[in-house]
């Protein structure tokens, strides 16, 4: 599992590559820490190359969202595959995120 963070003008893009499962979640949580410091920008969670997300991955997404709001940031989840879309839907988090 790899996480790349790119700053692009008013956006900060976090690109997730691979499987965000329980074993990889600890490192990913560490990798996304810079997102918690971002102020007044759009945070894009780019999931085009994310193959799978577990509960631990969902918790990471939720913590990014939780930190973003008080920092004036909007979180957008982009390009999720069918399997991940299903995870968001059946856990009831689909309406919590802006999924594009």
């Amino acid at each position: 599992m790899k996480t790349e963070i790119v700053h692009n003008g008013n956006q900060v893009i976090a690109k997730f590559i691979g499987r965000l499962d329980t074993p990889s979640a600890v490192q990913t949580a560490e990798d996304v820490k810079p997102l918690m410091e971002v102020e007044n920008k759009e945070i894009i969670l780019e999931c085009a190359e994310l193959e799978y997300i577990s509960s631990s991955g969902l918790r990471i997404f939720l913590s990014i969202r939780k930190e973003a709001a008080p920092h004036g940031c909007k979180v957008i989840v982009r390009n999720i595959n069918d399997e991940i879309r299903q995870v968001f839907m059946m856990t009831g988090f689909v309406s919590l995120f802006d999924i594009q």
Partner: peptide
């Protein structure tokens, strides 16, 4: 049916109403 064959152990409080 949806969650039974997964190991997803976090849900939102919207899941019931949804």
């Amino acid at each position: 049916y949806q969650l039974g064959n997964t190991d997803l152990d976090i849900i939102s409080s919207a899941v019931g109403i949804q």
